[in-house]
């Protein structure tokens, strides 16, 4: 699980979770992430698919589009108040 870095202005940060074992590697989340916060991993899941990684947490707005698009329920995003969950 990746965590976002704190920024000074933002009251919240975007967080993305990936469930690699559900992923079928369609790359739709990477393609349609508005800020480019997600990339495909070089790694494989047990069925041999590359899966997404939350590579650039600082870019994430928590818009949740990745989770809306994912056909496999393998990724989702949300917004977390800064200072919460630590």
């Amino acid at each position: 699980m990746a965590t976002a870095e704190k920024t000074k202005k933002k009251k919240f940060r975007g967080v993305v979770h990936v469930l690699p074992e559900r992923c079928k590697g369609c790359r739709v989340c990477v393609e349609f992430c508005p800020t480019g916060a997600i990339t495909m991993s070089d790694g494989f899941n047990s069925r041999g698919f590359h899966y997404p990684e939350f590579t650039y947490p600082e870019k994430c707005t928590g818009c949740e589009l990745c989770g809306m698009y994912c056909p496999d329920f393998a990724i989702y995003g949300y917004r977390e108040k800064i200072g919460e969950g630590e």
């Binding site: 074992e21 559900r22 079928k24 590697g25 369609c26 739709v28 698919f49 989770g67 809306m68 698009y69 994912c70 056909p71 496999d72 329920f73």
Partner: peptide, 16 residues
């Protein structure tokens, strides 16, 4: 899960 739908199939998207 995982479901029967293929890579990139739009059905799962609509389920979201």
């Amino acid at each position: 899960l995982p479901h029967v739908w293929c890579q990139g199939c739009g059905i799962g998207t609509t389920v979201n």
